[in-house]
């Protein structure tokens, strides 16, 4: 096993552990901190898998912008920790968990048998320059549509977040 494979498994374990911690915290603030760690580890994994530009974007957008936005909202709304994390009854989740576990096991077996492909992945890196050229040559229309989507999201967030007029907001 190469050193890169060891790095992959260590990073994967860190990501899964941090995400599992995040989704079980009663306090949303703790969950967000755990999730920021998970996203930073995911960025390192992206770098290992040959996408340095996307690794930087993962840190900037996910671990930076999105998590900070969540933090702002949590501090603004003054949320209390949840008394009960799950829904009405814990027993109702048992069938779901059992069937989900069966699905996961079947999928793991299937992937290990079928989708392995020709051996392990080679260690190559997509240079940001080549990636940018490719993106704007082949997907320029999709980039425009994505910018339009972000604009619509901006307008929607502004519209939903406006005051009701009485507070001057």
């Amino acid at each position: 096993m190469s050193i890169y494979a060891v790095m992959f498994y260590v990073l994967g374990a860190v990501i899964v552990a941090a995400t599992a911690l995040a989704i079980t915290r009663p306090n949303v603030m703790h969950a967000i901190v755990c999730l920021a760690l998970s996203f930073v580890a995911t960025a390192l994994l992206f770098y290992l898998l040959g996408a340095p530009f996307l690794a930087v974007l993962e840190v900037v957008i996910y671990a930076g912008a999105i998590m900070v936005l969540f933090l702002f909202i949590v501090m603004m709304l003054e949320t209390k920790p949840d008394e009960k994390i799950l829904g009405p009854s814990r027993r109702q989740w048992l069938p779901v968990l059992a069937l989900g576990g069966v699905c996961l096991i079947v999928m793991v077996v299937f992937l290990l048998l079928a989708a392995g492909g020709p051996g392990p992945l080679p260690l190559v890196t997509a240079a940001p320059l080549a990636f940018g050229r490719f993106l704007f040559q082949k997907y320029w229309l999709a980039v425009e549509i994505a910018s339009f989507l972000l604009f619509v999201a901006l307008v929607g967030a502004l519209y939903l977040g406006r005051g009701d007029g009485t507070t001057g907001g």
Binding site: A5, T19, L48, L86, L104, G119, P120
Partner: peptide
Amino acid sequence: MPTIVPYSHVLILAAILFLLGAGCAVARRN
């Protein structure tokens, strides 16, 4: 050329993460 891991291991990791996220979206009440 050095190698990393088979593609299936990446897919399994992604699937585990996806299931964790889906479970969080379905089960949490916040």
